[in-house]
Amino acid sequence: MTGVADHLLPSDMPVTLIDADGHPVPETGRALPDEATLRRALASLITARRLNDQAYALVRQGRLAVYPSSHGQEACQVVAAQVLADGDWLFPTYRDTVAVVERGVDPVEALTLLKGDWHCGWDPYEHRVAPHATPLATQLPHAVGVAHAARLRGEPTVVMALCGDGGTSEGDFHEALNFAAVLRAPVVFLIQNNEYAISVPLARQTAAPSLAHKGVGYGIPGERVDGNDAAALLSVLGEAVERARAGGGPQLVEAHTYRMQAHTNADDATRYRADADVEAWVARDPIARLSAYLRVDETAYREQAERVAEHVRDGLNRDVEPDPAQLFAHVYATETPQLREQAAQLTDELDRSLDDEGALR
């Protein structure tokens, strides 16, 4: 494909600024982010890894119902949040707890849904973070709608919409790209290509040269980036966000990364991938790479990560007494007579089941 669509095509190879050994890649045509920006990223990466591992431990202790770990993918999520301005929006998937926390959501609140509670855990409008989306890609058309609405109002809002490689196989993904392109909505679609949709490898999902190429058919420029290189992500995603903010329309970015742990605690990854394949990605760890480049004392960063882990343990180890009245809250904007009747019936039944001291009979 040449000519008019050349500007839509991604790089032949993913953009990399710092190699796996922590050395700057020469002649990339892109400047490395400044040291303060990279230090901020490293601090967040260390906290993110600790949060991932702490949450996985809480699953084994029965304090979380499920946890889709992003161990190894933290750079994608940390940077996706860091390149956004306060007024921008983030639309995460179920695996993007790290990105949610990086946007300022209390990590205990960010894990509420995964604990099995009935609500998402945080106020989306306060943090400008949509709820976790468990169904694949269903959040992407919503992200485009928010971006389009902001553009109609003349607001400088950009929306970062996250999905995985499995999400690109869903109809919602393609509808969202077409919708965004036609409306020139200020959306950055970030695909975290971790090579597996649960047990389905990428080769069984698509025959495209890359996932970033999927934008071409919709008139959306695509780019590929090393998803384990925080510096490259800062450059590519930062550029995409500013382009969208300036009225340049949507962009599709494919970040090449790897899911180091199982899909969730309910998955046995050894049934569909070899340990040697996982081991090959250990040397490409995003934290080790950035740390090797910066060569800074990480003591303060790791102490902060431990404080976050302690806060998560304390928050999730508290037993919350369920309130049956919540069954009837937020069902309708205006409560219906039937709902009031049902609530009264439950209250009466509960009252009759308790003795004079408030204990169940």
Results as ranks from 00 to 15, higher is better:
F179T: 01
L152E: 15
H148P: 02
N178K: 12
A161K: 03
L183A: 15
A181N: 01
P156N: 04
E155H: 03
E175I: 10
R153L: 15
F173S: 13
E170D: 05
R184Y: 07
R151L: 10
L152G: 08
H174C: 11
A150E: 13
T168E: 06
H148T: 08
F173C: 12
F173E: 12
A176R: 06
E155S: 08
T157P: 02
A150G: 11
G171P: 10
E175N: 02
V144P: 08
T157F: 06
L177A: 07
S169H: 03
H148A: 14
V159N: 10
V159G: 14
A180I: 02
V182R: 09
V182A: 13
A147C: 06
V146H: 09
V146L: 04
M160A: 04
F173V: 11
G166V: 10
H148E: 02
S169R: 07
G166A: 13
H142L: 12
V158L: 06
A143I: 08
R153M: 14
A176V: 10
V159E: 05
H174Y: 07
H148I: 03
E155N: 00
T157L: 03
F179A: 01
G154R: 04
G164P: 03
G167K: 11
R184W: 02
R151G: 00
A149H: 12
D172N: 10
E155D: 15
A161I: 07
F173D: 14
G145W: 08
G171C: 01
S169Y: 00
V144K: 10
G164Q: 08
V182M: 10
G145S: 08
D165K: 04
G171Y: 03
R151F: 05
F173G: 11
V159C: 11
A176T: 05
A143E: 12
H174V: 14
R184K: 15
G167Q: 12
G171T: 05
C163D: 03
R153I: 01
E155W: 00
D172S: 09
L177E: 01
D172Y: 02
G145Q: 05
G145L: 09
C163V: 09
T157I: 14
V158Y: 07
H174D: 13
F179Y: 15
A161L: 02
V158R: 04
C163I: 02
L162P: 06
G164L: 09
L183G: 01
A150D: 12
S169V: 06
H148S: 09
T157Y: 06
F173L: 11
N178C: 07
N178F: 12
G167P: 05
V144N: 04
R153K: 15
H174I: 12
V182S: 07
R151D: 01
G171S: 05
R184S: 14
D165L: 07
E175Q: 15
A150F: 06
G164R: 10
A147R: 12
V146R: 11
L152S: 10
D172Q: 10
E170L: 13
L177G: 08
M160T: 05
G154F: 06
A181Y: 11
R151Q: 15
N178T: 15
A176N: 08
V182P: 12
V146C: 08
A147N: 05
A143C: 13
G166F: 06
L183E: 12
G154N: 08
E155F: 04
A180C: 06
L162R: 04
D165E: 15
R153Y: 03
R184V: 01
A176Q: 05
A181V: 04
A161M: 03
V182H: 09
A181D: 11
